[in-house]
Design a protein around this nucleic acid. Structure first.
Lengths: 339, 339
DNA sequence: CTTGCGGCTGTAATCGATTACTGGCATCCT
DNA sequence: AGGATGCCAGTAATCGATTACAGCCGCAAG
């Protein structure tokens, strides 16, 4: 492997000069040219491990996610990646399965590897980031709120639940159920709160029997439908508060009756009850028509860009007080299909 | 930050002894205990950058993928991750968008960061891994064949195309089209070859007009349907040779006529032509019934585990000749739904 | 008693790049 | 002219862990 000293010798200068050329400091032009020639001839590229050791941090940022198989998070990743690459940083993804032990492990790796910073979508409200923060590493939390005093970027989850529910009300649905995530995640709770508020606003009942805490995965939505259809009186619509639960709902309805209902009134010609469906978040890879579904779209990519922006500021040395940003979203849409 | 020398002082030993304890060499038990106590009290964890600099490689492996938004590849990532974690390695994901420049960049990062090894799903048959290989870094290529003499794990793509096509033939379809990926990717070409062979075997024509080279994304499948329905005579079924193209096909059919056809004969009661559908690969997050679709499932997670196994052997020092493995898959299934 | 050997431990070199510090040289001011 | 100032380049210290090497001790054999 060629080292900096090889380049230095070939260019007839010292290692310090080579380093300076490579890092854009002031060096006499002819020496700089000689160095660049030598670099080119030898195909030299600096060893980042050594550089990181000396600089105290690398040019890699860690993106720690609960589930890289959820398209929501992969879209976040794209946003982070695009913003980071532009600034000369590389992004590595780590997958926690919403498990604290894996989360802790990857945060530890990020620290021990001296990564420049971490963007974390936490498993719960108190992720183990204390050590990182104390050591002055840059951390940005996304998607779910935490109790730590660090930069955070989330959606206005109450508003998301509210808007989705209101759109269902506007379509004429009256008895609207809600399938949300575990009570430990702020997104699940906040979106359900929006659902409740929207019903109250419309003078409808937010029957506790119509609120189901499932998981935020496909099977959660799929199974919750069974529970809800057992209620009496049964709901005429259902809100799924995340994308995967929405997939589960739609799949369950497709299996039972062919799909969701566009509007409540008389067109109940098909066999058995058919539900109106609302979803917070985009449906990934839908294989059915989605024009009957109320979708409140999110823009996870933008969330990623925003978070990366905050993180890069921190890495550059900003010590402003911790910021809590709300990522703006579009209003809901109905029947728009993202091919 | 606590360093190894802090631990050494606290335990009353030298740094060498601390290092030896931490790396499992022989040390007098009472000293070892003292070191471990000191480590615990100080909350010491070794700086991996420094370790990597000395050891010449880190305990991180890079998984370089064309598209982390494709569930096929995220499933691969899970497999790699599980296998690697068990062996004490961490995995970082890199996303290339099938672009050579991003691929080259991330491979460069992996090298410069002295990562232990790389698992690569290449953008084309000649990825820029020459430098890595020369330097003796461990590399395993997955999913698509390359010309380099390195370990490779792929599926038997011809067989996959063959089996899917045969299943459609068995259902009674006779004029089966094929939507495959770009001619530059071996998977697209090989699966199409399987389609052709299966038709010949069945005494059917593999009309070139029925073979469409699209991209391997949703829009590719979606748009290809339009092309195919313009052919005359029109096909009565279509094979999508990857998961996302399959999604595009199903979505297009849902938009046009409500979905795929279970079998060709008389039940053409719906409006207009309805196609039988076969897909190589699982349908991610399907929101429709999939019982009418012939699916030849893949096991990307296993592919990841296999690749990680090969890589870990290499990292451990194996210098066996390059291996080319075929990842086994289950046979096709029809109408099974993975919730 | 001496020599030899094996098992531990400590000292210091090492990995490769960055950068504080020092000194040489030229320019500029009084 | 003499001194101050600034710019650049080179030398060597530095980041933190690993490990080659050397030294020490104890035991066994001669």
């Amino acid at each position: 492997m060629t080292r900096i000293i090889d380049v230095a010798r070939r260019a007839g200068v010292s290692t310090a000069t080579v380093s300076r050329v490579l890092n854009g400091k002031n060096v006499r032009p002819e020496l700089a040219a000689a160095v660049r020639d030598a670099v080119g001839e030898l195909g030299y590229s600096p060893d980042r491990t050594a550089r990181s050791l000396r600089r105290r941090h690398s040019e890699v940022i860690a993106l720690v996610l609960p589930d890289v198989e959820n398209p929501f998070f992969t879209a976040v990743a794209r946003g982070v990646e695009d913003a980071a690459l532009e600034a000369g940083y590389s992004v590595v993804l780590c997958n926690t399965d919403d498990r604290r032990d894996k989360e802790e492990r990857y945060l530890g790796v990020a620290d021990d590897e001296n990564m420049a910073g971490v963007i974390l979508a936490p498993a719960d409200a108190t992720p183990p980031i204390g050590r990182l923060v104390e050591r002055g590493r840059s951390v940005v939390v996304i998607d779910r709120r935490v109790t730590h005093d660090v930069d955070q970027v989330t959606f206005d989850n109450r508003a998301l639940g509210f808007r989705a529910t209101k759109a269902l009300v506007d379509r004429g649905f009256r008895r609207i159920a809600c399938i949300t995530g575990p009570e430990t995640t702020s997104t699940a709770v906040d979106r359900a709160e929006g659902w409740r508020d929207a019903l109250h606003d419309a003078g409808l009942v937010a029957d506790d029997g119509l609120l189901v805490h499932a998981n935020f995965r496909v099977d959660g939505g799929y199974e919750a439908i069974g529970t809800l259809l057992g209620r009496s009186p049964a709901p005429d619509a259902v809100l799924a508060t995340n994308n995967l639960a929405g997939v589960g709902v739609l799949r369950a309805l497709a299996d039972r009756h062919g799909g969701p209902a566009p509007a409540p009134a008389g067109d109940d010609g098909s066999a058995g009850p058919v539900l109106g469906v609302g979803v917070v978040g985009d449906l990934p890879f839908a294989t059915s028509r989605t024009s009957d579904v109320v979708i409140v779209p999110l823009n996870p990519r933008d969330l990623g860009v925003t978070a990366a922006g905050l993180l890069l500021e921190r890495i550059a040395g900003s010590d402003a007080p911790a910021r809590q940003l709300i990522q703006e979203t579009e209003d809901h849409r109905e029947g728009v299909r993202p091919v």
